[in-house]
Design a binder for these strands. Structure first.
Lengths: 190, 190
DNA sequence: CCTGTTGCGATGCGACTGTATTGCTAACCT
DNA sequence: AGGTTAGCAATACAGTCGCATCGCAACAGG
């Protein structure tokens, strides 16, 4: 068994290049060659680790979701209200890195419209998001599950919509954040 | 001056083909050849009317916005609350045609992240949407302009976020609609 | 040392891309 | 009637695409 390299590390380097391309040029800009160049590796390497362009693209959203999950899991132990706010504010592009991440995210949302595998990954991720969010609303506000779920979807949708407007440049990240805080604190405990 | 054809009609036929391609395969699927084939015309014709691929793509979002404006202008004379609801519910994909339209819309939203001209058109359209929405909130609920504007952005963002979730398949169009109605009727008049 | 296998760079191929160019055809103006 | 010209179809072209293939180099186990 020759030449032991860190398989996961190699894959991450390439996916990082993919994210940069997506953020700069959209998914349209993704090709085996552009991603390889951006990651500073040869095209053969990209092929070796992902085989096909489609697999590379799917790995891009897969890893993005996994990173978001890791960020969320760092909040275990915090009070429900804080964890809820983390879920709602997490995607609002405050930093430049955050902006890149969420730009890539929405590129994939658009991709999901015409790509079943991507849609599946996104659907699963949002499903988990709604469930977690619902739990925190229940715990924080003492609502029943049905109302809590409706609230959760409302809150998450508001967050999504505001994020889009930040990305387009319609409002600032601060405005979006204060809008979410205002709305979520306006929630009555049933 | 020979061969008088309806210039606008020709352009519309081609853009209709473009929309179908975008809805089915995303903007990635757009090429002069695929659009021409979908519209049932020759590639030369597409070139003749739009010159460049970029111009064609821009015409696609331009016409989409114009059609939305026409739909909105059909509501003049209705009470503010109804016009507000039109703005909020308009994009939720109830019919198949509506789904195609809003799918195309969000494809362009993603495109806007990396394409300045598209971003400009979208930013202008959402700016007008916020203004109109603000006016109706003021008239319907008697709020001051600042609060009304915040409410307008909140409502429109909620609508955007719910629409995205409908497109991904997370919730149904009916659930989105009733969520918006519930939220907007929950609004106190200051 | 040797051998087997993994990692991957290089290259080739056919399909497809956007754009430029060419030239015919059908209608309007005189 | 005839010339002019808008409206296009057809084609050519250089570039890029995803993918397959080939071959070498580096290193672990014998």
């Amino acid at each position: 068994m020759p030449r032991a390299v860190d398989h996961e590390q190699r894959r991450f380097e390439i996916v990082a290049g993919l994210w940069q391309i997506v953020a700069e040029q959209g998914i349209e800009g993704v090709s085996l060659r552009t991603v390889a160049a951006r990651a500073g590796v040869s095209m053969g390497r990209v092929q070796h680790y992902f085989g096909t362009k489609d697999a590379l693209v799917i790995a891009g959203i897969d890893l993005l979701v996994k990173q978001a999950v890791v960020g969320y899991e760092a909040t275990v132990g915090s009070p429900p209200r804080d964890r809820l706010l983390h879920l709602l504010l997490q995607q609002i592009p405050a930093t430049e890195a955050g902006r890149i991440g969420v730009t890539v995210w929405y590129a994939y949302v658009a991709k999901a419209m015409t790509h079943a595998a991507v849609r599946e990954i996104l659907a699963e991720a949002t499903r988990v998001g709604v469930e977690e969010c619902t739990r925190h609303v229940q715990e924080a506000d003492g609502l029943g599950e049905v109302e809590a779920r409706a609230r959760a979807i409302e809150l998450l949708s508001l967050s999504d919509g505001l994020t889009l407007r930040v990305l387009i440049g319609d409002i600032t990240a601060d405005e979006a954040e204060s809008s979410i805080r205002a709305y979520s604190s306006r929630l009555p405990g049933s």
